[in-house]
Nucleic acid binder design. Structure first.
Lengths: 128, 128
DNA sequence: CTTGACCTTCCAGTGACTAGAACCCTTATC
DNA sequence: GATAAGGGTTCTAGTCACTGGAAGGTCAAG
């Protein structure tokens, strides 16, 4: 399977798959012409990576999760620990963004949004 | 006022202030010894930038907002438009993170987190 | 005169790709 | 056999907003 087929099968751009090879997340073999060859197993790994990335896991977490997936003697507690830490980070980001949203919503509501120069948004930025 | 005083007065790291000069967000003068000199006005501008960054505005938005702040003939609608677009981006991010949180919370709850290898988290990553 | 705290510039790295250039290989058609 | 389209390859550089570190100049105190 060539790279564009692997891309179609996983939803990942070909460029991203090449990048994953560069950082040793995946090791496709090479054909006589130098083209990358992806096995069904590797396509499965790529789908795993795509899903993990979609859940927001960083590349190093993905590497760990992939290794755990391959390891039949893994402990589910190791997987859970990675997921739990990631969840905490997500919750922190949500909290930060939610605070921004509250402030912005408030300021936008207060701003007339007309031709005049007076603006509560700028006042807020200038003062606090 | 030297850079470390400006940093202390604004909460921004000195490195960040140098970076802001490099990208022409601020233009401190220089003393005879080559040190950057910050006026009270410039410290005020830096605080404005710090606050805008804290609300998540990107650097180019900050540049625009700073220019609008300096412009006495501005229309508040221009400020509001920038803030509104930014708010929409924040809401998109919150939505994406909230979806991740829901999935992760569900999976973490389902995972025993013990010494055994069976793990709903890996199952989810492998299948979907 | 030395020490230590400041300041300067410049280079490189972060995360996870992405764009683009320059070039090679395969397949189909004429 | 020529050619053109549509693969594939590598390499460099750019993204965003800093951040770390090295090498070296400046200043105030003792």
């Amino acid at each position: 399977m060539n790279i564009s087929d692997a891309a179609a099968a996983t939803g990942l751009p070909a460029k991203t798959i090449r990048y994953y090879e560069e950082i040793d997340l995946i090791r496709p073999t090479r054909g006589a012409n130098g083209y990358r060859q992806f096995s069904d197993t590797q396509v499965h790994q790529l789908r795993f990576l795509a899903r993990a990335r979609a859940l927001g896991f960083g590349i190093e977490d993905c590497r760990s999760l992939l290794a755990l997936w391959q390891d039949r003697d893994r402990a589910s507690s190791d997987v859970r620990a990675i997921a739990q830490e990631h969840l905490t980070e997500i919750e922190d980001k949500i909290a930060a963004l939610t605070a921004m949203r509250a402030t912005l919503t408030h300021l936008i509501t207060a701003c007339a949004g007309n031709d005049r120069p007076d603006c509560p948004i700028l006042q807020d930025l200038a003062q606090e």
